[in-house]
Amino acid sequence: MNKRRMLFILGISAAIVSLAQSLYIPLLPDLQQDLNTSLHLVNLTVTLFTVAMATMQIILGPIVDRNGRKKILVPGIIIYVIATIGCMFSGSIEMLLIFRVIQGIGASSVPLVAATMIGDVFEGKERAESMATYQMILGISPAVGPLIGGIIGSQFGYTGTFGFAAVSALLILIAAIFMLPETKPVNIKPAGTRLGLKAFGKILGNKIGVVVLLSGFIMYDVFYTFIVFLPTILQTKYALGAASIGFFSLALMIFNLVGSKISGSLQTRIGSVRTLFWAGIMTILSLVIFIFAADYSLIALLLSLMLTGFVMGLATPVMPTLLSSEFVEERATAMGVYNFVRYLGMATAPLIGSFLYPLGNIQLLIGITALLVVMVVFVTNRLLPIKKSEVTN
Rank of each mutant, 00 (worst) to 15 (best):
R382V: 03
L23A: 05
G157R: 00
A334H: 04
L28G: 06
L230Q: 07
E182F: 01
M312T: 13
P26E: 04
R127N: 10
L48T: 08
L303T: 08
M253D: 00
L35G: 03
I140N: 07
D221H: 13
M95S: 13
L351D: 00
N381D: 15
A175P: 09
G205L: 05
L230M: 12
Y357N: 08
S141W: 09
A20Y: 03
I366G: 04
G259W: 14
E329T: 10
I227T: 13
M6Y: 11
E326G: 07
R4Q: 11
I362R: 08
L234C: 03
K207W: 05
A239E: 09
K388C: 13
R127C: 07
I254F: 03
R269H: 15
K189W: 01
F327D: 04
L48K: 06
T369S: 15
R342W: 14
R342Y: 13
I203P: 07
I140S: 04
L73A: 05
I105H: 12
K237P: 15
S389N: 08
L359T: 02
K189N: 02
K387T: 00
H40G: 06
N256Q: 14
E123A: 08
I78F: 10
L285V: 15
G163A: 06
A199D: 15
M335D: 15
I203S: 06
I140W: 14
Y238G: 14
R127Y: 03
A334S: 05
